[in-house]
Design a protein around this nucleic acid. Structure first.
Lengths: 176, 176
DNA sequence: ACCGTTTGGTTGACGCGACAAGTAATCGGT
DNA sequence: ACCGATTACTTGTCGCGTCAACCAAACGGT
């Protein structure tokens, strides 16, 4: 048991943390509700369909799709299964590697997605974008980027400069 | 169906939005994992215990606790039920209003909470606080505050000036 | 050519949260 | 004093995500 001495946060820090956790607990559900109500889609289903449509190829491998959407493979498998029952996507065994599965958007899927986009963007705008000044938008991009970097280096390997130093687990490079 | 004309986001906006959604999908689970691993607590259970301890009174009503933790009553009821089985909280019928239930921290609960705090703060620090400059912390506070305000006025009643107009349920105030 | 290993994905069981329905106590009107 | 309405919770059911176990195809060494 190493007491790391991280006693408590100062006021500035706890204000930011409190704000973050509050938004965390409220925003995702608000987003989900709107999408569910207007289009019958979960936010994650929306992300899956969007990712498929943005792909240059007409189909994607399950694993690739899972990585692109930050999902575990079982989760993706379940969701794709449901979407397939609703005829929004189609699965087919990859001919080159018969273990793999290719997923593609159906016509219905594309239509449903396209119809759901405006409402979703409108909600995003209403709840977030319109609430912020351009400077705050830039700040938000930087902030989320910084947090995202920490998260990436935490779980998994650090995307940048992974070949220079072999798996150092702690340390703060502090390249700011 | 009123086409609201919310065409698409410019690059600045979509960058911020993308960053936000990414952090959204990763940070909560990271937080939960750490807490679960080190203390056997869900993040929400942690919030419940913390709220109870911060309360000036030794016990809280279920409804009050639900509001304080942004939870629905059924959810809270389930969670408190589990926590009670683990002897971390205790329920008792309120003597003044026998419909109501008072929840209080037990000694075990207090101990578990206290032991879990440092690790949680350390994680918060590691993933978020340390990733940001003081200016970014302030910016984050403002940003989350602005979003939180939008969320509040969206679902439920707008916190400011609620007494001027009596409970209007539908309608779009459209005060933009 | 064969068998162990690794890769790619699916399936089943459990836990948690949302929603709806139910119960019990209190309030309020007549 | 009584009965409907409201309040404060609880309980049951369902959907989704996670974890573990599983199966099948491809690789790789000998």
């Amino acid at each position: 048991m190493k007491k790391r001495r991280v006693p408590r946060m100062n006021e500035q820090e706890s204000a930011a943390w409190l704000g973050l956790t509050t938004v965390f607990s409220l925003l995702p559900s608000a987003l989900d509700r709107q999408l569910q109500r207007d289009s019958g889609l979960t936010h994650f289903e929306f992300v899956v369909l969007s990712t498929l449509q943005l792909s240059p190829e007409p189909t994607m491998r399950m694993t690739t799709l899972a990585q692109a959407t930050d999902a575990t493979l079982p989760r993706l498998s379940h969701v794709v299964g449901r979407l397939e029952k609703r005829r929004l996507v189609a699965r087919s065994t990859c001919p080159e590697d018969r273990r793999a599965t290719n997923v593609g958007l159906t016509g219905d899927g594309r239509r449903v997605l396209i119809r759901s986009v405006p409402g979703h963007i409108a909600t995003a705008r209403r709840l977030v974008i319109d609430a912020l000044t351009p400077e705050q938008l830039d700040a938000l991009t930087e902030i989320t980027g910084a947090i995202g970097a920490k998260l990436a280096e935490e779980s998994g390997d650090p995307p940048p400069e992974s070949l220079s130093s072999p798996a150092r687990k702690s340390s703060g490079p502090k390249t700011s």
